[in-house]
Amino acid sequence: MTDVLLTRGLGRRYGRRWALRDCTVDVPDGRVVGLVGPNGAGKTTLLKLAAGQLEPTEGAITVLGERPAARPAQLARVGFVAQDTPVYSGLTVAEHLRLGARLNPGWDAALAAERIARLGLDPAQRAGKLSGGQRAQLALTLGLAKRPELLILDEPVASLDPLARREFLQGLMEATAEHGLSVLLSSHLVSDLERVCDFLVVLVDARVQVAGETEELLATHYRLTGPRRDPDRLPADQQVVSAAHTDRQSTYVVRAAHPIHDPAWTVHRLTLEDLVLAYMGRRAVGDAGPVLEVQR
């Protein structure tokens, strides 16, 4: 089975600023991948590289085993819903579907028509008059109806209110399950991704901090609280993600392959949000550390 997304030392520079550096990830087939990180971390850059909208400055990327956007057939296998879900404001909903039908050999007209009807969108309505949520749904319909193997969504829910947000993600999950496609979506909010993702990539300051299966990440990260202790006195198989100390107490978030039985510690499991925040916080303490890879 080929990896959906495979990058090796991938980097992209804008002028003198690196938007993405040393990005090496393997994303297996059939996952819903959440790409999470603060604003400006390089999420959009990575997604645009994967969709073939951008050329890498260095390194290599393959999507579904091919260079992104190398040829029309590769484009047909990848759906991309860009940030702010752009649509042609002068064209009607029906004309957008016609556009999709004209430009995609694998277009599923029945799927598109059924989704539009179910969402209650008026085909004669101009896309410029749609609400943000409706526009996002239209863009998602265009992405889905070309029947891609991988669907990439860049902050698809960022501009939606909580209700529309939930509906959109729910619709996305239904479609994913129905058509068996892989999904790569980004958000700066973990709560958006928590319910839907089974694979997580955390991106901070243009670098990948951690990448892996959500369950595995949750099973191998712990919060340790106990008497103050220096990090170099921790066992070698426990990698420190974050550390906080008071005069008498230490709190560590560590990654360990095995359960921790040290009686000196109070051991807690982490929620996904805590885990992501621990990695995001590494920027603040200036501890770049090695990029952690999940062993499979």
């Binding site: 969709a51 073939g52 909208q53 956007a69 040829r71 029309p72 057939a73 484009l75 047909a76 990848v78 759906g79 991309f80 860009a82 940030q83 702010d84 752009p86 649509v87 042609y88 404001s89 556009l99 999709g100 430009l103 995609n104 050999p105 694998g106 863009a139 265009l142 992405g143 070309k146």
Partner: peptide
């Protein structure tokens, strides 16, 4: 300006075409 290039470039045609 409208970002629609990102929409149309993801259809199954190359941007050269």
């Amino acid at each position: 300006e409208a970002g629609t290039h990102l929409l149309v470039w993801n259809q199954s045609i190359t941007r050269t075409r």
